[in-house]
Write a protein that binds this DNA or RNA. Structure first.
Lengths: 231, 231
DNA sequence: CCGGGTCTTTGATTCAGATCAATCCTTCCC
DNA sequence: GGGAAGGATTGATCTGAATCAAAGACCCGG
């Protein structure tokens, strides 16, 4: 553990409310690791040995079956991942892989569960974290079941636009292949969906997107706070 | 509260570990209600006022946007629903509607949150409940993103078959319209999917399904414990 | 600077699933 | 019993998206 990161970790929702001692204990047990890009951190089906907290970089969560694979989510700093599996002492439902050089804090599952058992405040913090993870997946599911792929793309652009300060320009935070998989479409189809959105003032230049008709885009997308509102 | 139901409620994962007093307090605040079929219990967008526990009957959770609607889940006794919204003091992401005459225990959200704040064991019980809800949605999402509609149907039949004792016969626990929406397909397409499965020994007679070639069906479905294993 | 790899785009074609339409069937209510 | 209403099935057609194929664009290592 580098001392340097401690304040940021301590400030996380999950750790903010716990006692100094408990926090020190967890950090003492934790490993700080730096991984190159494209490293498989977790394989679905394995037991959850560590809780992961991403300090720097980017991590992709993947699901697969029968030889197919899909991107389930992208984790940014300072997100935690696979908390539920750790708590349940269960098997990972998703794999995780770095998509950039990443710095990751790994806390042994054992320590998390021990602390959960004895620290009520920690349990409450976990409740909050889990609730928002749950609600995020529910939103995602609604997005998937209720919208066409062009609508999903349009709404994703609007969300990113808002998250980036609504300046009229959006920078895609991941490559198009990954975006396609997140939105459950093929890269080819994503390309065509961008083509469709040209008519709604969406100009694409590599990872830079310019929006010149936000109203039109929103009319098409019909953003819904029960789906798109970032938490 | 009818005394009669208390033991069953007390036995629920969520309440098993809490103190007698806390439990008594919750039950004292709770309302027991019987609703006819097709009653809207919750509307998405509303604030979460109550935690719901289904004692008898069946409840459908629905998501909607832009005039479209989809079935997100079916709750059976003794399931809880919309726990996450209650805990976060947030807005419902899903609506709920009875699909049969149902008996429902309603606990004021206020009481749940108060108890969460003071009872560490309750917090831990909630952690377990939330974790499994979360993992259930993740499984669902993988199912949706990684499989075709025929595969989803085939796997659903296999799951139900296992859950019902693997006797070679499955009884559909909901009507086909609902099943279609759960599996994210139209009723017409569900009908055709059943047609496709005839070649794999699936005989449909109203809600009764007979399986005569389980091996063949499984070869098609490729069931995966990380998606289909019921918790 | 070259060559190979990956990512992206574009075009042609196919396919899964939706939609539209008609019929049949059950249920249920007068 | 009869008829209305909703559910399920079946057929014809349409469409959104996947697949197949090929060509550019970009990056990276030698």
């Amino acid at each position: 553990m580098r001392e340097h990161d401690l304040p940021e970790i301590r400030a996380l929702e999950l750790f903010r409310t716990m006692s100094e001692e408990s926090f020190a204990e967890l950090m003492h047990a934790a490993y700080l690791q730096t991984f190159p890009t494209q490293v498989q951190l977790i394989s679905e089906g394995d037991l959850a040995d560590f809780l992961f907290i991403l300090l720097e970089g980017r991590v992709e969560l993947l699901g697969s079956t029968a030889g197919r694979e899909t991107t389930m989510a992208i984790i940014k700093p300072f997100g935690t991942f696979i908390l539920a599996a750790v708590l349940m002492d269960a098997i990972h439902l998703m794999s995780a892989r770095t998509t950039e050089k990443s710095r990751v804090l790994m806390i042994p599952a054992r320590n998390i569960r021990d602390l959960l058992a004895k620290d009520g405040d920690f349990a409450r913090a976990i409740v909050v974290e889990l609730s928002s993870c749950y609600r995020a997946v529910v939103r995602d599911q609604k997005n998937l079941k209720l919208r066409s792929s062009v609508e999903r793309l349009a709404n994703r652009i609007i969300s990113l636009h808002n998250a980036q300060g609504a300046t009229g320009t959006v920078i895609l935070p991941y490559d198009k292949k990954t975006l396609a998989s997140l939105l459950n479409m093929t890269p080819e189809n994503l390309s065509r969906a961008f083509g469709t959105l040209k008519a709604y003032g969406v100009q694409v230049d590599n990872e830079r997107i310019c929006l010149s008709d936000l109203t039109g885009l929103e009319t098409l997308a019909q953003p819904n706070r029960l789906i798109d509102e970032r938490v």
